[in-house]
Design a protein around this nucleic acid. Sequence first.
DNA 1: ATATGTTTCAAACGTTTGTATCAAACGATC
DNA 2: GATCGTTTGATACAAACGTTTGAAACATAT
Lengths: 217, 217
Amino acid sequence: MSQNDEHDPTKERLLDQAEALFAQKGYDAVSVREITTAARCNLAAVNYHFGSKENLYVEVFRARWAPRAMRVQESFRDSLAAQDEASPTTVARALAEAFLIGPLSDEERYRHHQLIVRELGQPTEAFKLVADEVMRPFFRQLADMLRPTLPKGLDKEGLMLNILSMFAIVLHFNFARAAVTRMTGREYDEAFKARLVEHITEFSLNGLGGHQQEVPR
Amino acid sequence: MSQNDEHDPTKERLLDQAEALFAQKGYDAVSVREITTAARCNLAAVNYHFGSKENLYVEVFRARWAPRAMRVQESFRDSLAAQDEASPTTVARALAEAFLIGPLSDEERYRHHQLIVRELGQPTEAFKLVADEVMRPFFRQLADMLRPTLPKGLDKEGLMLNILSMFAIVLHFNFARAAVTRMTGREYDEAFKARLVEHITEFSLNGLGGHQQEVPR
DNA sequence: ATATGTTTCAAACGTTTGTATCAAACGATC
DNA sequence: GATCGTTTGATACAAACGTTTGAAACATAT
């Protein structure tokens, strides 16, 4: 058996090309023929390896998206561990850096956020996996980090709303590149991404209570 | 001729049903047959009235989405005019209210944001209309309102980033309802929407420089 | 009533869709 | 080298797709 053989080139190529196409066009705009042509394999390969087009889509999230999300989270924790302590400022900056610069190539970042935003707006079978095994654990970590630094008045729900809002911004600046470029006139080069990290860090502070440290008087 | 007859029921029903379905499922997941069945008319009606499915999609934005966006903007200006002056706080609150409570029904709000977020991530022919005739003029208005209250250090680009970030949050809380409900455990009833308005108002202040007024010491 | 322009309708067009089939090729084990 | 399970390949299939067609139905004006 080649069950343990992790080097099934056809299966891997299918996952790669399927992810790229699903991210770029959305599930329904991509045909099985398009995927198999891009992966340089036979049309029947999708149904042989994954049973159906829909299974392939879910498997893209399990085998590609979720592991990559984990890499981003590790990058976040690493850059945060380099700081003295987890203040709202350092958390916000580490988050922005992980998701805007981080360990991903530009192409990977693009795929990653196209896929997740599509899922957020129109949850499918894959969303259970995303929510339960990626989002919720990470949000819990973030909440635990931030709780000790909370201003007195911020309850659990308020903290979650702040975390969601930070993600909203991070997702938006990765997802809506075309619109952002159109409105700002700036391409997503290194300079602009660095600018965005600064912006997101600053913008997030009030909600997270960080302004009390930033604006002493 | 009935060119001037604005009560073409078939054409209007097609626009209504097409918008609902495009918002719910996305362009490619909706078939012309599905639209015409929902609009209780013949299959050929789409091609007769709009020439093609793609034209119908663009026309949904021109005849439905853009006018609705104008209503939301008016609602924003009205609730802002009721204030003494346009401080970052009042602008942020008026924006959140217009887009989360505002003049739209829940169903309209859902359609509206599903459609625009799909366009933001994957711009089509309709995006030109959205960007040039809706977004840019409104952003310009916002910028003009906020400029007099700017903290000294904030340049034009920084202001645009702050406006984009506010919109990112507003869009997200309308677009990703399923995920937000899953993470917070709260349904989108009136109480929660009021809570979100408070949250968005607070969260946006730092970027807009409002914390200097909110936190005097 | 007749003629005219507009809208609706059922039916069919040629493609493309996701999936199924089955023989050929492959790779490991005996 | 024959035999096995596994993978690939060309081909076929019914269903669904967007669009076209031409006749019927309609409204309006002469």
